[in-house]
């Protein structure tokens, strides 16, 4: 027999537990048993994240990685990216990156679209994580994630510098 005086307390304890269960179900159930299948190629080097101005010269065209010397423009950044760049193939099943040479990278058939054929995409973290009292958000600008089916898994990238500006996604390996 439930004590009627304690009924509000029981409901007060049950409601947040129910919300936690529902959130967990919403986040984890759509992706249960599903994993990304397509590896991707990326490059790292000083300021390779091109902010849309194509400063590195490396791009995927016709399914292949090509290099076109970037033209000088007045747009920011005013000069093309400089310094050495490295290419890595990220194995999504193992969660690790393997360095490849430019020649090897140019052998891959790549899909440069943001979303992989199985619906995953690579995205930077949203905001800082926990702080003193209230915060959270789970990620930060210095991390990259592979997202899909309501799940986000942090990528174990090998980078030459800050993840904020030294990472550029090139394409999904087909």
């Amino acid at each position: 027999m439930i004590n009627k005086q304690k009924l509000p307390l029981y409901i007060a304890l049950a409601v947040p537990v129910l919300m936690i269960i529902l959130v967990a179900a919403f986040i984890y159930m759509p992706g249960a048993g599903k994993h990304p299948k397509y590896n991707f190629l990326y490059m790292t080097g000083n300021s390779v994240y091109d902010y849309g101005y194509g400063s590195t010269g490396y791009q995927v065209s016709g399914g292949r990685l090509i290099y076109t010397p970037p033209a000088q423009t007045s747009a920011y950044p005013p000069v093309p990216q400089t310094g050495p760049v490295n290419f890595y193939l990220y194995d999504v099943a193992k969660g690790q990156a393997t360095e490849v040479t430019l020649a090897q990278a140019q052998m891959y058939t790549l899909d440069p679209t943001n979303s992989s054929p199985d619906g995953y995409f690579v995205q930077q973290g949203n905001s800082g994580g926990g702080d003193f009292l209230f915060g959270g958000g789970g990620g930060d600008y210095n991390s990259w994630y592979i997202k899909g089916n309501n799940r986000a898994v942090k990528l174990n990238l090998k980078l030459t510098g800050s993840a904020y500006s030294n990472f550029k996604f090139l394409g999904w390996e087909e």
């Binding site: 995205q123 959270g136 990620g139 997202k147």
Partner: peptide
């Protein structure tokens, strides 16, 4: 209350977009 908030933040992680996170 703080525990409840951080549990939800941990579960959600980076899985949702900004507007969906606001709804949560």
């Amino acid at each position: 209350t703080a525990l409840f908030h951080y549990l939800i933040a941990w579960l959600v992680g980076e899985s949702l977009s900004g507007s969906d996170y606001s709804k949560v």
